[in-house]
Nucleic acid binder design. Sequence first.
DNA 1: ATCGAAAGTGTAATAGAATAACGTCCCCAT
DNA 2: ATGGGGACGTTATTCTATTACACTTTCGAT
Lengths: 161, 161
Amino acid sequence: MTTPPLACQPHDHRHCIEQALAEAETLCARHGLRLTALRRRVLELVWQSHKPLGAYDILAVLSEQDGRRAAPPTVYRALDFLLEHGLVHRIASLNAFVGCDHPDHAHQGQFFICRQCHAAIELERSTISDSILDSARSLGFRVEAQTVEVVGLCARCQATP
Amino acid sequence: MTTPPLACQPHDHRHCIEQALAEAETLCARHGLRLTALRRRVLELVWQSHKPLGAYDILAVLSEQDGRRAAPPTVYRALDFLLEHGLVHRIASLNAFVGCDHPDHAHQGQFFICRQCHAAIELERSTISDSILDSARSLGFRVEAQTVEVVGLCARCQATP
DNA sequence: ATCGAAAGTGTAATAGAATAACGTCCCCAT
DNA sequence: ATGGGGACGTTATTCTATTACACTTTCGAT
């Protein structure tokens, strides 16, 4: 067993947030994208934890905590931007969004979601994606996007029921 | 390349429907489950094509075509029953439901969904699920459910753009 | 045969997720 | 300075799903 992922270990999460924001700044600067205050704030909120966050949860914080006039499109537009540039991922089975660990390159990870602590661990294993591509090839199917979302119990939650 | 799946080939689809209903009858009889008229009808509607069907599409047919008084819970309850016993699968990325090819044993397939013709091809490849289980093991993660949904172009739609 | 519990369905209301359509503002390249 | 495009605000609506409660049917136990 390899090093347990940060997502399901106690850790200084401020560091995760800072790093995610810094990487986003860098990425946007490099690609000439505008990381506006709103987009930055939404990214920060998504990174408040390793748990996927619903768009309406974000909306509630913007309205109540930031005092910002916000309606659904405000949030969804920011999320669309972040998704498009790989800064967050959408978890289809939860209708929720989670920060991306390594937005430096285009990818779609595989997600291991704990049903107890709700942490989402992102992996990027070629053994999984290759096995999908192999199966696709056997069908003559051209893959454009992969969604892999696994639900279960993370190591930590197995230990503390 | 193996035999192309029925889902993206022209075929006598009435046979698919008949077989699915027959298998459902058998399965319910064997397990002492009640395949009521409503449940049977919903299963039949889901099997009208190989395209995942939304709950509200089903609802519309029940109301307009069958003249049945139907509200959302009517449909969702039937779908819950069919899901629970493996007769249909839910496609999370589409919020839609598709008939199961082989409800004879508990399983969760992998779905290859054509973005053009919308057909969903179900596979059950141990290479995919094993690679997921391997990755999970390396995390110490206990898998309870797998969602694998691949979007792209089926062989047929690649040929006819 | 009849009773009663459990399962199934009808009904109304509501919650939750996402998008459409339109207007305004602001930045900045010409 | 100006006008064009991107970002955001606003209102309304659509689509998806669940809660809560009432009524009915089914089926086993008596």
